[in-house]
């Protein structure tokens, strides 16, 4: 196991870097896009609700791999040339944002409706009430399920291996197929994923305690 690591550490570190980078990008953008669709669905306009509902249902119910492959194969063919890393990360962002939208929406609905009535009666617009009063309270409720989404996101980033995204899983596949030491290779890959997800999990717990 040591030799696998010493002989391939550059590839492994590269993979770790790509996985981390993809995860951070996807986390950031899926949180924004997810919250956007959650708010859209809570808006008092039917047409916006329907748009949000369609987005969420479509991307929540298509396998991540299909979404990623779409961006890897179809988009370069008809739209613009993007590499595997970009295609995979976009797929990951869209897929995760659908789940985050559902989570954030549940959080918004968990906030006492009196808060919105109070804010609107006070003269605040829907958006002002949302950003100053409702969302801060909603996020407090959804930190535990959001933590789950983030951990899933890091693990799901292994989809990049299928679209040549240079991530951990991709490097692992290459090392395994050249050294034939599959057991040790995938153990090392697993440990490297843990190095990302464990601190994330710990941090979310810490945040949950701090805010409650």
């Amino acid at each position: 196991m040591i030799t696998i690591f010493t002989e391939n550490w550059q590839a492994l570190l590269t993979g770790l870097g790509y996985t981390l980078f993809s995860s951070i990008l996807a986390l950031f953008f899926s949180l924004i896009i997810g919250s956007f669709f959650a708010i859209l669905e809570e808006m008092p306009y039917r047409i916006l609700k329907i748009i949000a509902r369609i987005y969420i249902e479509v991307f929540r119910n298509i396998p991540l791999l299909v979404v990623a492959m779409f961006f890897y194969v179809v988009v370069p063919m008809y739209v613009t040339n993007i590499n595997g890393f970009t295609a995979g990360t976009i797929g990951l962002t869209i897929y995760t944002s659908a789940f985050i939208a559902e989570t954030v929406r549940a959080g918004i609905q968990a906030v006492d409706p009196g808060q919105m009535e109070g804010a609107r009666s006070n003269g605040l617009t829907f958006m002002q009430a949302m950003f100053h009063i409702i969302l801060p309270q909603a996020f407090k409720y959804v930190i535990p399920p959001l933590g789950n989404q983030f951990i899933n996101l890091v693990k799901n980033s292994s989809v990049l291996a299928f679209v040549a995204g240079f991530d951990l899983m991709y490097q692992g596949d290459i090392i395994a197929s050249t050294t034939f030491d599959t057991i040790n290779t995938y153990i090392i890959i697993g440990v490297l994923y843990l190095i990302i997800t464990m601190p994330l999990s710990y941090y979310m717990r810490h945040l949950e305690k701090k805010l409650s």
């Binding site: 006492d112 009196g114 804010a119 009666s121 006070n122």
Partner: peptide
Amino acid sequence: DKIRKNVGMVFQHFNLYEN
């Protein structure tokens, strides 16, 4: 919103901003 700027409301359950 133009009306609400001039007409305040006090509720049975206060509805103060919890955060």
